[in-house]
Amino acid sequence: MKRRDFFKSAAIVGIASFFKTNAFGTVLSGKEMAVHTGPDLVAVMGGEPEVMLIRALKEFGGIKTFVKRGQKVVIKPNIGWDRKPELAANTNPDLVGALVRLCKSAGASEVIVFDHTCHDWQKSYANSGIEKAVKAAGGKMVPANDESYYREVDLPRGVNLKKAKIHHALLECDVWFNVPVLKHHGGAKNTISMKNLMGIVWDRSFFHSHDLHQCIADAATFHKKPALNIVDAYRIMKSNGPQGKSESDVVKLKSLLVSPDYVAVDTAAMKLFSQVQPTDLKDVRYIALAEKNKVGTQNLEKLNVKRIKL
């Protein structure tokens, strides 16, 4: 073989393999989900947050599947409350920090983190430990405490919620990750990935006065979907949610659920949660309503679910 030919064939193989893992893979996964091209949902159990995150992402082809060099990334954890990490009222700071680091390593030009908090935003950012973790990982905490940061967006597929003001950082980014924590919730029964969307919206009181569940399901029709929903179940809050009273409300499950599908990941999370606190999936009405809005499926049987125990 001539030297030149060798280079040619090597290049072709290289290009082909590149296509196979990436472009081919994504094209296929859209249609033939049952075929083993990539998982629809990955569940990991038994590790530290960062370990589980890296393991789960590996199933999707690593962080580079989602984040390309030079892209602007937004991460939306739950930072709603002025509570320390041990109370599981907010997303685990180690998980958020690890995700920021991964995005940065994939070449993201900027990684922005925010939440429209319920408690004082500065105290929530600080005491959740998330601000520190994000800054240490090279990310940027952005305020979301004022209406001027939000822009109105149409939600044509929404039933009750037809319009919403959404944080401009999210509207302007290239890719975003929804990183909720799994919790009991006095109003919505449980808060997982879709309930976490209330933190990208300005006017939450509209939700409460126009059928909370329907509005949550409507928010999930927002056209700019997260690349992944990464549900933190390292510590979950089993009772007295969403704030919790003490560490007695917290159970350490050391788990992580990852899926691009809101409905699937919330369904799976509810099944995990129900082992601790039996809850009727039907009572978490927004899950079924979101399925009706065609944003995902509750039928986990039909999906390619990867269960990984570390």
Partner: peptide, 12 residues
């Protein structure tokens, strides 16, 4: 319709 915003925010 469900709401529960009050209970959600109640710290005690």
């Amino acid at each position: 319709k469900d709401c529960g915003a009050c209970s959600e925010h109640c710290p005690t």
